[in-house]
Design a protein around this nucleic acid. Structure first.
Length: 859
RNA sequence: GGGCGCGUAGCUCAGUCGGCUAGAGCGGUUGCCUUACAAGCAAUAGGUCAGGGGUUCGAGUCCCUUCGCGCCCACCA
């Protein structure tokens, strides 16, 4: 706080028009949001910004949560921290592939050679996608994502995010690929990553394996089919199944060991209907006597429970569903001859759906289908991005240990979850539920094209078979590598695919395998050690509640394994955006609102105001009404600032020593409280409370204090006038800074009318300083005086008079009248009251009696 | 089946350690061209704090319970 005199440069007609474009450019040139690389770790506040998926469209939900983070970033910056606020772009993986396919009308066919002259069709035909090579496809991905990133960046800038745009990354760029490959190689070296051939949940549309974290249940119609198996004597054993088409894949029946009905069957065999394959009857605790007939058929594989039974009971394997989701041409063992083969051949090549119909037909003919199928609906596992039910297919995949098969690691990760500070705290439950429910390690390989390739090759033996147990890996300084176009050390490219040569691992990593390293990637891990030491582990991870099990958990796993620490100390989980009908907004529901129109209609600050009113973890409805309020607040800040400056007059001082009047001191005492509360709230990631307190104070400041003191403030002769002017300017300087995290554009605008430099580079106001200026100031003086003023206004309003109407007399009585005594002059001026009587009465509530002139005297 | 959150004015929401007569904004109503702001200002009506029970001098707040809404996890014949 300085006691210098000010000059004012405010316009006659303040306006919000065009302030976004104006200040975005100024900020970019001045570098006010640049990270100070000389700051030590304790002076840094670092943010692990969620990299938005650039292939999707930005929607209002993004604006919501990114605004929350930005208000905290701006507070921390004003609070003296060097804020490390990078931005990432998630352009990895399936969403980009799909967008490129649709945008250009192409599809990737890895068997096609690269065409350096390829040009995408001018008019893409979505029904006839042109097959192109993997390299051509990836080039198109790069082109399109670069364009998408530009669009995103311009929206973020317009929203006023105080990102340091020199620090950006993309999840598919060289840095990220190198980091993902380096982390993987280290996981591999430490035994945390491993390859296994095992039954895997498989999406038949995308033809890729998917991880537990990417599953979701969907209710689907189905039907119980009651099917007869046969004992040796020909008598039937009835099972119920929703998947009769898997009958040729049946390897056993299973019932609960205590189930009375099946005791004599355990240890014996039965034959499958139609195919006549002999399968054992086994006992297992997971079989539920209540379900169906209490005895189930086990197939390889209908679901994950089948996998458990198959593994624990050491059953045979009869796979019948191929990677494309159709019944494979090769009949499984036991069905390769005779009638069984004949029946199986009727299913070959069919989709699951068709195979089911045919199987039901065959069961009907053989008389083994009992009664009609009973329709039910039941939950079925889907890949979250897919639209066909998942199958279970045996494939070779890479995994990273995540505690799914290891109690000790699981406990360590649960402990990390408890170490982490959560806002709101109850979100930790989601993490614990998830970690406690893990049933497998993290499957990170995907059979896709656009992604980070595994940095691994395999030697080929004399017959040309890969030696999976002897993977060849690059040195870290060679990263990133593409094993499909580069040869490993010791080999040359012409040995690719030949016996005695080598082959590259064909898969790419799950997108989370890269984004789980976002703190390391952004912090310069193994790339810029100086930066890394200043910002890692990071301070804050903002993110959505829907990706706790994926992004948050996997990031904790990677940092725990690689760095032996949490990746950040605090996480803030934002809520959903609901449309005005309180439905969750999502692309699939088609109720997504894009932010541009809102920003244009209400201004960026107004949209930010709406967002800032949503607390972390709380679902918030899209409410244009709040944006209108935000716009009104912004305009009010323009007008009130202009007014204070014009009242103060050119050359006015904001001199603490001049603040002598009790009413002015009362206002500053109240301000000190607000500054204190807002700062504390912000430090605790409670931006909503900080805004609410600031806003409350500001409206009271405008409605009451400003009205009370404006007459006095015009008086340039007396010390009382100087007291008001200094207090007004001191409060204005505080208000501009208190609002700056929320309304960066309008606060910068008004700041520029009377101060040098950016408001966003200023120190957060100090409660202690205002307390010192307020000295013996008692907030009650302002509060009670305002209360009396309100009574005067009410009297005029009820008499349907203008607020300008003269008042003959105001009589104030009660136990708090002394608080008003020092402000009688201001009260008289603001209320246009000729006389004000004060009557102290101990123990009596304040009463205000307003005497208005007779109506005829008003003429 | 296990767990989490929510339910306060017509609407959207605050309400911090249990403590004045339960608050705000929007919307409604009644007024006001008032020397910053009519995209403004002033005033005003509107409440069984989901229901029931309990603890307490005192409960929107703590405990039990019922109902409703939303979500997470697990199950998946």
């Amino acid at each position: 706080m300085t006691n210098r005199s000010h000059s004012f440069r405010m316009p006659d007609k303040p306006s919000l028009d065009g302030i976004e474009a104006k200040w975005v450019d100024v900020w970019d040139e001045s570098g006010v949001y640049h990270f100070d690389r000389t700051a030590g770790r304790e002076d840094v506040f670092s943010i692990d910004t969620p990299p938005p998926t650039v292939s999707g469209s930005l929607h209002i939900g993004h604006v919501f949560s990114y605004t929350h983070t930005d208000t905290v970033a701006r507070f921390q910056r004003m609070n003296g921290k060097a804020v490390f606020y990078p931005m990432g772009w998630d352009d990895n993986g399936l969403p980009t592939e799909r967008r490129v396919q649709n945008y250009y009308g192409v599809r990737c066919d890895p068997s096609i050679p690269y065409d350096p002259d390829f040009q995408p069709p001018a008019k893409p035909d979505p029904k006839r996608q042109i097959p192109i090579s993997r390299r051509n496809f990836i080039e198109l991905c790069d082109i399109l994502t670069a364009e998408d990133e530009k669009v995103f960046e311009s929206i973020w800038r317009r929203l006023g995010l105080s990102v340091d745009w020199r620090h950006t990354y993309a999840t598919i760029d060289d840095t990220s690929r190198a980091a993902a490959q380096r982390a993987f190689l280290r996981n591999l070296a430490r035994g945390e990553a491993y390859m296994a051939e095992a039954p895997t949940l498989w999406d038949v549309t995308f033809r890729t394996a998917v991880a537990q974290a990417e599953l979701e249940d969907r209710e689907r119609p189905s039907a119980y089919h009651k099917v007869a198996f046969h004992k040796a004597d020909g008598s039937p054993v009835h099972i119920e199944t929703t998947r009769p088409e898997l009958l040729p894949a049946c390897v056993a029946l299973v019932a609960h060991p205590d189930d009375e009905r099946y005791q004599d069957l355990f240890g014996s065999t039965v034959t499958t209907p139609v195919f006549g394959v002999e399968v054992p009857v086994k006992a297992h605790r997971l079989a539920d006597p209540e379900k169906g007939s209490g005895i189930a058929m086990i197939c390889t594989f209908g679901d994950t429970t089948d996998v458990t039974w198959w593994r624990e009971l050491q059953l045979e394997t009869r796979p019948i569903i191929g990677w494309d989701g159709r019944i494979m041409a090769d009949a499984p063992q036991g069905l390769r001859e005779g009638a069984a083969r004949e029946a199986y051949d009727k299913l070959v090549g069919a989709t699951v759906h068709t195979a089911r119909e045919r199987m039901v037909g065959m069961l009907g003919e053989s008389g083994d289908l009992v009664g009609e199928p009973t329709p039910i609906t039941h939950p079925v596992k889907f890949y979250e991005k897919g639209d066909k039910p998942l199958e279970v297919v045996t494939t070779r995949q890479w995994y990273i240990r995540n505690g799914g098969r290891d109690e000790d690691l699981r406990d360590e990760l649960l402990e990390r979850g408890r170490e982490l500070v959560w806002h709101p705290d109850h979100m930790r439950q989601r993490y614990e539920n998830w970690v406690e429910g893990l049933n497998s390690d993290w499957l990170i390989s995907r059979q896709r094209f656009f992604g980070v390739p595994f940095p691994v090759w395999y030697p080929l033996d004399g017959d040309g078979n890969p030696r999976y147990d002897e993977p060849l890996v690059p040195a870290e300084d060679q990263l990133p590598v593409d094993p499909s176009s580069q040869a490993p050390d010791g080999y040359t490219e012409d040995q690719r695919g030949l016996p005695g040569g080598f082959t590259g691992d064909p898969d790419v990593m799950d997108t989370w395998a890269t984004s789980s390293l976002s703190p390391q990637i952004a912090s310069g891990w193994e790339r810029d050690q100086d930066l890394f030491e200043r910002v890692f582990p990071m301070d804050f991870r903002p993110q959505g509640q829907d990706i706790i099990r994926t992004w948050l958990f996997s990031t904790v796993v990677r940092a725990h394994l690689e760095n032996g620490s949490l990746p950040w100390s605090t996480t803030g989980i934002s809520g959903w955006i609901l449309d005005p009908d309180r439905k969750k907004m999502s692309k699939s529901k088609g109720n997504v609102v894009t932010p541009i129109a809102m920003l244009e209609k209400y201004s960026s600050d107004a949209v930010r105001y709406w967002a800032a009113n949503g607390r972390l973890g709380t679902d918030t409805a899209l409410d244009e009404g709040q944006m209108k309020v935000g716009r009104r607040l912004s305009i009010k800040i323009l007008n009130a600032s202009k007014f204070v400056m014009s009242v103060a007059g050119e050359g006015a001082a904001s001199d603490p020593a001049q603040v002598t009047e009790p009413l002015d001191r009362a206002m500053l005492a109240a301000l000190a409280e607000v500054v204190e509360e807002a700062g504390t709230a912000f430090a605790n990631f409670d931006h909503t409370r900080a805004l609410e307190r600031t806003e409350r104070f500001f409206w009271d400041f405008c409605d009451d204090y400003l009205e009370l003191v404006k007459a006095r403030a015009y008086d340039t002769e007396s010390p009382e006038g100087a007291s008001a002017r200094s207090a007004l300017l001191i409060a204005l300087g505080a208000l501009h800074r208190l609002f700056a995290p929320f309304l960066p554009f309008v606060t910068e605008e008004v700041w520029s009318w009377w101060q040098d430099g950016s408001v966003h580079g200023q120190a957060w106001p100090s409660a202690a300083e205002y307390r010192t200026v307020a000295a013996d100031g008692d907030p009650a003086v302002l509060a009670v005086t305002a209360e009396v003023l309100r009574d005067v206004r009410r009297a005029k309003s009820e008499a349907k008079l203008s607020m300008r109407a003269e008042v003959e007399r105001v009589r104030v009585a009660g136990d708090r009248v002394e608080a008003v005594r020092s402000a009688v002059g201001d009260l008289s001026a603001a209320g246009r009251a000729a006389a004000i009587d004060l009557e102290p009465v101990e123990g009596k509530e304040l009463t205000v009696e307003v005497t208005l002139p007779e109506p005829e005297e008003q003429q």
